[in-house]
Nucleic acid binder design. Sequence first.
DNA 1: GGACAATATGGGATCGATCTCACATCGGAG
DNA 2: CTCCGATGTGAGATCGATCCCATATTGTCC
Lengths: 335, 335
Amino acid sequence: MATIDDVSKRAGVSRSTVSRVVADNGYVSEEKRRAIQQAIAELGYRPNTLAQALRSNRSNMIGAVVVDVGTPYFANMVYGLQRATRRAGKALMVSSGYADQDEEARAIIELVDRSCDGILLYLERPVRPDVVEIIRAARIPVVMIGRMGCEVARGSVQLDNFGGARAAVTFLLQQGHRRIVHLSGQADFGDTVARLEGVEAALRDYGLTMTDIRVVNGIFHQDFGYSATSKLLDEGHDFTAIFAGDDDMAAGVLLALRHAGKSVPSDVSVIGFDDAFHARHLWPPLTTIRQPVDEIGETAADMLLQLLGEPGSAARQTIIDTELVVRDSVGPARH
Amino acid sequence: MATIDDVSKRAGVSRSTVSRVVADNGYVSEEKRRAIQQAIAELGYRPNTLAQALRSNRSNMIGAVVVDVGTPYFANMVYGLQRATRRAGKALMVSSGYADQDEEARAIIELVDRSCDGILLYLERPVRPDVVEIIRAARIPVVMIGRMGCEVARGSVQLDNFGGARAAVTFLLQQGHRRIVHLSGQADFGDTVARLEGVEAALRDYGLTMTDIRVVNGIFHQDFGYSATSKLLDEGHDFTAIFAGDDDMAAGVLLALRHAGKSVPSDVSVIGFDDAFHARHLWPPLTTIRQPVDEIGETAADMLLQLLGEPGSAARQTIIDTELVVRDSVGPARH
DNA sequence: GGACAATATGGGATCGATCTCACATCGGAG
DNA sequence: CTCCGATGTGAGATCGATCCCATATTGTCC
């Protein structure tokens, strides 16, 4: 592998001058610049990234830790991250925390130790205090995505869960539904809380309160959607629409309804949340609230990249809008 | 950030001795070892990964370039890669090539320049020759996953596409189907060819040939599944089963059948390939050939990690088995 | 013509580790 | 008692870049 010294010898100049040409800063005469560029081309020289990073303390690498890159949701988010980082000419390194604090800690420390210029975090729980200290000591800017805040974060990007849930319930109300069920997720997730508030706001617009609908608490999982729906049907609870806390639940809801012989949307309307990968494959194709996951990732990465340029700036926050995606699972309320 | 020199001063020893303790090699007296370990703990010392990599020429990092990490398929594969690399205490850096040769080239060179110890590749086309040369010059071992071979690869991991397709068609034949349609993917993909051979083998077992079934060539996409199926129905082609080249196609097939008023599996049986993320969400839940994507990734990463230990070893190859997943979309042939 | 800023170039310290080599000490074998 | 291998330690070169500083060489203005 050719080094900067090889180039300098071949071009008959000093290391310093080559460095100036490569980094494109400082004064270099046109003549030498050309000679150096030629030498670089002839030798196929590419600077040693490690040495550059070690000396300059800039690695041109962005790190990210998300809950689990193996899921379509986070994969899509990573897609957004890559888009932004690639545009800025920076490399991206992604790890999974698997919702385990120790695993998360290890992943973050790994990124710090590899001298990432900045770090993006999407975690389910607060970052361990000793890790916060490590990040702070390394003076690495952090942008949080989604749920958890963090004292060390210089910025955050969040979904408008409130507005999304409000839009979902408003849509059901507009279609004439009044006997509504809401299946909500883990009670200690910020998402869940914000979505419940959105539900309440939509009801209020129609002069209703939470007591006018049925809320069932559970978890963001297909099985919960199935069991909760089955139970409501068994109990003889009379409802015309279900707002599922997310599309996984909605998949379970649809299955339970089908098994009970109910047809969607003529007997019961169903609306989900996320516009997950499988939403269009459900039957009927699911009407849902789209969460632009890749855009969230891209926005967060862009925010971080901007933060790198301005060391002392104030913390910022961006809220990403949702969008109602109308497919076939919601219809007018039966009488 | 504490450096090795800080540790050595605090423990009253030389840099070299600290290095020996950290790397756990060479001779160090128990007494000094303890003093050094204490100093490390007190200072919260973590070695500078960049400096280590620069000097020792080992980065403890594995690189991977796949077609697109944003899709569930590759996300799942990355999950397998992470499992293996984390177990080996190595970091993983993943990029997408987006089926674009220049983009791929950039991604691979990036990994080479960051001194990855080894590289994993899942690409749709052959690697650009100049990139092959760069990999060779850097003497970085490469393991290929899936489709394309590559002269520089020291190993490869592939799915048993032949066996999978054979199992799919055999299953249909066992259920009494004889009027079978096969929708196949891009003709220039190795996967497609191998699957076609598998189909042929299954037919041969039952004394049949390819002329006894109908093969429609297209691409691995839901829309093709939909249009091809609709066209066959319009033409009045009489069939009792469809083997879709992958689950995306199968989703389109199911949709087209439903729109044509056919019920699955009583009118037509459908079997897919991949056991993609959405297979269980389709209606009816799709019977398909499972491709253990994460296992493929894990196997490839393990192979690469092993290769790192033994520089001169011969190229190796592993074939990963598929598995028939029986759900509800295949039934006995109607008469 | 001298002062000073702008342009141009190279020398050498530095980043934080690894690793070779030289050297010291010790114990046991011959 | 000497020799030698095993054990223990440190000095210093090195990896491949960046970047500060010293030193020319210009050109321009008063």
